[in-house]
Amino acid sequence: MKHYTNTGNKDTRSGFGAGLYEAGQKDGRIVALAADLASSVKMDAFFNEHPDRFFQCGIAEANMIGVAAGLAITGKVPFVGSFAEFVTGRVYDQIRQEVAYGRTNVKIAASHSGITLGEDGATHQTMEDIALMKALPGMVVINPCDYNQTRLATLAAARYDGPVYLRFGRPAVPNFTPVDYDFQIGKAIVLNEGTDAVVFATGHLVWEALQAAEFLDREGVSLEVVDIATVKPLDEEAVVASAVKTGAVVCAEEHNAAGGLGESVAYALAKGCPVPVEFVNGGDRFGQSGTPAGLMQEYGLDAAHIADAVRRAMARKR
């Protein structure tokens, strides 16, 4: 049974921009910081409405993280925005000391994540950021799947007291989750109910998994698709429940194998329900220039590859 309707294409980063604007209207503690990419990260609406609560840091991400931590110490709720690589890999130690170990209420808004950043190529395409952020004690990692969910996740991050890594992307992709519902950090969402296998997907790969479910339905395969919007803390109960129900698992993400969603799911299943698991991810390599759609195909991250992985997982069922 389907719990989604595609209402057309929209970029997830604009969902962040809308969420940040709304959060800023509701809560005067919200401040925003950018490192010269405010427009790309869609922080303009917030900036135009609250120039006094917006701090342009220039191309100096390390300082931006520290300034955000300082603002959080005084009770502000800072959102720092840039491309995912530049607010993770470039500033890992700053996030570690100032935000995670320093226990400051900073929200790291990471746009242009993954391979679908496209033409700029590997220097800008991080496929390692979830691994880095997941490794930090206490860090919440949210990777919403579409515009609506990114907006709601941004509002949830603003309400949550503690460090959050919020990951979203550049291209316009199908917008298919409801406009408004009670988005809860740490809660997986079943978007398609099925009985033969389950795909745990995150970010842009959720839509690809739903497409795979439609192909497979024509082959008589009933595929469950679970949207893992929050990678950490993982909804282990929901993961185990779907694994028990279906007995075959695929993990799908726009991220490399090391440290991604797949490892988190496999860890949960090893403890709770050891069943065959297949993985759809970027493997162990860097990205390259190309169109987002071309890259998704080249790196094996599209619906066809997810469907193949489902068939492999099902073939391994006992």
Binding site: A69, I73, K76
Partner: peptide, 17 residues
């Protein structure tokens, strides 16, 4: 190398308040 940035954030927070 990080405390100066944090101090600047606190200083901005004090200004906002």
């Amino acid at each position: 190398g990080q405390g100066l940035s944090a101090a600047e954030g606190v200083a901005l927070g004090k200004k906002l308040d």
